[in-house]
Design a protein around this nucleic acid. Structure first.
Lengths: 221, 221
DNA sequence: TTTAAGTGAGTGAGGACTTACTTACCATGA
DNA sequence: TCATGGTAAGTAAGTCCTCACTCACTTAAA
């Protein structure tokens, strides 16, 4: 008699392949770590989330940390965006460039676990946090900064530190997500409307007046 | 023979008073929680940091959570700033208002533990996090938003959602701190210079052109 | 002498990780 | 077409350790 037969099976009642198991363990662990932090999550919980014995977790990942590392390694995929923006960049379409970056950065959904994971890893001081940050976050600053620099050289933007300006802009956007996703602050408007306002505000502050040469703070075109 | 006599003593070799002990426990716990999170910190560590037995910690705080709550309760002191800004507000000195708020928000030092604590409590989902956020953070948004609103009514600022604008500005500033204090990203310039740039950028985007009356956001959509 | 400050040595619960074992899968050759 | 064995997937039931919290007690001070 198979008293407790169909436990660690996939949806067809068959044994899962190593790859699948690994993937679903990573997925489950990611969402648990994101929800409760590394220290706040137990290996037993992870196993249970996948419907598998705790021991199996350790068959795939020798330690809990290894599992954590696997998550971070997996979660590195940014370049889709940068490709998408490319067109707008060559056309010098400021509005579009900023809007696209902001939308991407602000978009909820799929990886709202992402931000939490990033924060947790930074706060808990995991070694991989830097890699994580570098590969996933830093790209944006550098990319946007480069664009701002060329626009300054074009004479279209005022002369500011490009990296600082990039951080300022991304700061607005990321902070918005933070408020919403971490602190549960209700949104005032739709994502789109918010992005539009931010982009508008920021570009107005950055764009050079075409005719006037009043040196300091004025707004744009 | 007093084999291990002078253990839980204060600097004079005397027994500490209840109040002092409580305070130093709170202080030690705050910095440990900030560094490693609630789950990542043990009561033994806290005791050791104060140079006292673990048992004593529980004489003062019945549970670890109580201690945590005590920290959050203690850390609520914002109004100093708001008083200081008041003068600038009545004079409608935009630049000064924004600079003061940003400087306050960005200043490192004393409570750099603060931001970490706030983030940890939010991430780990402590009940008090909301209170913490509300009492310490929200104030800024509301205060700044109110100012922006009056300036819009004055006709000095463009017509934007005041709360959204306030969040955008504080977002820039807080994000800057975050990068620096949590992610260890090196600063590009001094705090003052950074604040100056941010304020300049933001006010430029917000201020209405004195002569033109071009109504809404140019180059939109 | 009372009372508060302080402690060493627990306790039980739970967490990361092991061990020794069972089952399903499937490739092979008889 | 099967027995059949090698192997990977899977598990129950630990081990050992750490952690939050307790207990029974000692010491200092007023």
């Amino acid at each position: 008699m198979k008293k407790q037969a169909a436990q660690g099976r996939d949806e067809n009642g068959r044994r899962a392949s190593a790859g699948d198991r690994q993937a679903s363990l990573i997925a489950a662990a990611a969402s648990l770590f994101a929800a409760k932090g590394f220290n706040g999550t137990t290996t037993k919980e992870i196993a249970k989330a996948v419907g598998v014995s705790e021991a199996l977790v350790f068959k795939y990942f020798p330690t809990k940390r290894t599992l954590y590392a696997a998550i971070l390694a997996e979660k590195v995929t940014v370049n889709e965006l940068l490709d998408a923006v490319e067109a707008a960049v060559t056309k010098r379409d400021d509005h579009r460039v900023f809007t696209m970056i902001a939308s991407y950065r602000i978009r909820p959904g799929v990886d709202s676990t992402f931000l939490r994971l990033l924060l947790f890893s930074a706060l808990e001081g995991h070694e991989l946090s830097e890699l994580f940050f570098g590969k996933h976050h830093k790209v944006f600053y550098d990319y946007l900064a480069a664009y701002i620099r060329t626009r300054i050289e074009d004479g279209a933007f005022r002369s500011v530190d490009p990296l600082l300006a990039a951080r300022a802009f991304i700061g607005m956007v990321v902070h918005h997500r933070l408020l919403h996703e971490i602190f549960g602050v209700p949104m005032l408007q739709s994502h789109e409307a918010t992005v539009a306002t931010y982009v508008d505000l920021f570009l107005a502050g950055l764009t050079k007046l075409p005719v006037s040469r009043k040196s300091s703070s004025r707004r744009s075109r």
